[in-house]
Design a protein around this nucleic acid. Structure first.
Length: 575
RNA sequence: CGGGGCGUAGCGCAGUUGGUAGCGCGUCUGGUUUGGGACCAGAAGGCCGGCGGUUCGAAUCCGCCCGCCCCGACCA
């Protein structure tokens, strides 16, 4: 491609509304433009990078035995009612009505559609396992779209669904997919980790997220530094030993006046005790019913764990009216002692507390000297705490360390959640109708591109991994007015093209500085400068983006040499 | 949805006693330049987010709406 013919609108300045590097660079390098919050137009350069990632994903999915198909974006509400997610999915799902007031969803994910597709078509265990995938646009009405393509409302995703005869077959295939994902992200040139995760609304128990390591990542991973342990999990799902606190004195239960002290911070400052003495009491609403959740005052509740403990997806902190109704007190004075007519569950950190501080269920009063077991009991203890750095590894006990990551993929063992609710069954060897055992496997394509930029850039711009770069080589003729220079440039361009090297030739009549700046910004891995310095010796200058040194290549055979370099580097990434 | 901020030329921004709008970059023309975002001269480009109000007069004051960004609860 010749730059003068290409649509690559680069910008000198950072866009005002971009916060993170990948977002700024994708705009500045002319890869995309914003149309609305979380909605982007992909310009040719951005689209090429996206298609590179898609290509790698396709190759690896095919290698793993999956077959590509294309499901519709628009799906009737009926299908979602079958699985229960029409109501369960909540506001995140984009919904619309047709002219006859029939309801539809814009697919945020496709378990229902694929299950509806396979159901009735795959009838025998002999046809299993089967895995189908698509690369397609997904819609999610995110509460807060942000960070460019990282959290968009419309984004490209690869989603695969596998159907199995039994859990053992799913287990085998899950491993194959795990391996395929590892190959994909390695080929994309990413530094990543597979970590244990929470299944959330997808259902199922076993799931891993693939995290690209980046300080700008929205996910936090807790991992075990101990040699040979290997435990790593997102904070949504991580468990870990929380250090016990010294048991406070065994004072009698006493009511104290704590006017206006609502938060743990205010109460502990007022009573001159540590936050670990407080039994924090949060009133949640789970499927409309209030639940009191207790946790030690120095800890926070992990809502993903709470959802699992309550087996309820729609949970939220109750508003003040509900709190008043259930506790008889204003916000900030709830406590488990004497709390009636409401389910009370607690995190393990609450067990055995003596001399504790809790709300008195009476506005402006707290209780001190509270003893678990004597003054109150709970209906169950669960792991509800948000773990953090320093907590003990659940496998080996070593202190966990934390790092941030961008979630680019997730694989799930769904089990029979969808096949059962949607009556998708096959006939097994014994003649019995059984629900498919399912797995599903997602990759955020557009997010992967952004993650790659987060990991590969410098002050001047993007430094593409060769495998996903929009072009392999950029040729910069120093003086486009000079016939000899242009002859060398266009000959090299043609020779590289013949050898399958994707090349961009910056034939703009611009000063060198402008072209160099844009070349750095756009980040094509190899740059060939054709100018008087080299030509005087019959040579061209080759430089890798991101490296300082330039090497001179003899004009003769330059195309051959560059093509070989590109091929070798790509092969190396492909493993 | 709650809290904070912003909407003025393609992009980045200025614009306070209220008097019909400016700077830098980019674009176009001409010239001089040409190894890391050149210089000179000239030019084009604005329903000042929208609607309503106050006023002789509104980018500026008031109200409502829309859009965008950031901070808190979600997920590929």
């Amino acid at each position: 491609m010749f730059w003068t013919k290409a649509f690559i609108p680069t910008l000198k300045e950072d866009p005002a509304d971009a916060e993170i590097v990948s977002h700024m660079l994708m705009i500045r390098a002319g890869m995309m433009r914003k149309l609305g919050a979380g909605i982007y137009t992909y310009l040719p350069l951005g689209w090429r990078a996206i298609r590179k990632v898609e290509g790698i994903v396709r190759e690896e999915m095919d290698r793993a035995g999956a077959q590509e198909l294309l499901l519709p974006i628009l799906s009737p509400a009926e299908l979602w009612r079958e699985s229960g997610r029409w109501s369960e999915y909540g506001k995140e799902m984009m919904r619309l009505k047709d002219r006859n007031e029939r309801e539809f969803a814009l697919g945020p994910t496709h378990e229902e559609v694929i299950t509806g597709t396979v159901r009735g078509e795959v009838r025998s265990y002999r046809e299993l396992p089967v895995c189908l995938y698509q690369i397609q646009t997904k819609f999610r009405d995110e509460v807060r779209p942000r960070f460019g393509v990282m959290r968009g409302r419309e984004f490209t995703m690869k989603d695969a669904y596998s159907f199995h005869r039994d859990p053992a077959s799913l287990d085998d295939y899950y491993k194959i997919m795990h391996e395929a994902y590892t190959r994909i992200f390695r080929r994309c040139g990413l530094d990543f980790r597979a970590v244990l995760a929470d299944a959330g609304i997808m259902g199922g128990k076993v799931t891993h997220e693939f995290m690209v390591l980046a300080a700008s990542g929205e996910s936090v991973v807790l991992s075990c530094p101990a040699q040979g342990c290997g435990y790593a999990a997102t904070t949504d799902t991580a468990s870990g030993a929380i250090p016990a606190c010294a048991v406070a004195g065994d004072e009698p239960l006493r009511e104290v006046h704590t006017p206006g002290r609502k938060t743990v911070e205010e109460v502990t400052a007022f009573l001159k005790v540590g936050p670990e003495c407080v039994i924090k009491t949060l009133i949640y609403e789970a499927a409309g019913a209030p639940v009191a959740v207790l946790i030690r005052g120095d800890r926070d509740v992990n809502e993903a764990k709470l959802q699992n403990a309550l087996a309820c997806i729609n949970i939220a902190l109750a508003d003040e009216a509900v709190i008043r109704r259930t506790t008889g007190a204003g916000l900030g004075f709830a406590g488990p002692v004497g709390l009636r007519g409401i389910r009370v569950i607690a995190d393990h950190t609450v067990k055995g507390i003596t001399g504790g501080v809790t709300g008195a269920n009476k506005t402006d009063y707290h209780l001190t000297g509270v003893r678990e077991g004597r003054d109150f009991t709970v209906s169950g203890y669960h792991d509800l705490a948000l773990n953090r750095e320093g907590d003990g590894c659940p496998r080996c006990g070593a202190a966990l360390t934390a790092y941030r990551g961008i979630e680019v993929g997730q694989i799930f063992k769904l089990g029979t959640k969808y096949s059962e609710s949607m009556q998708a069954v096959f006939t097994d060897e014994d003649g019995a109708a059984k629900p498919f055992v399912m797995g599903c496997y997602g990759i955020g394509i557009t997010r992967t591109v952004a993650a790659a930029i987060e990991q590969h850039h410098d002050r001047d711009g993007i430094i593409w991994p060769l495998s996903i770069a929009p072009y392999h080589v950029e040729i910069i003729p120093m003086n486009v007015g000079d016939e000899a220079t242009m002859k060398v440039a266009t000959d090299l361009y043609a020779a590289l093209g013949q050898r399958g090297v994707e090349t961009l030739l910056d034939d703009r009549d611009e000063r060198p500085g402008v072209k160099f700046k844009d070349a750095d910004l756009v980040g094509i891995p190899y740059r060939v400068v054709i100018g008087p310095k080299g030509l005087a010796q019959g040579k061209v200058e080759l430089k890798s983006r991101g490296s300082k040194e330039t090497q001179l290549l003899a004009l003769e055979g330059a195309a051959e040499e560059i093509a070989l370099m590109v091929r070798t580097a790509l092969d190396k990434l492909a493993g």
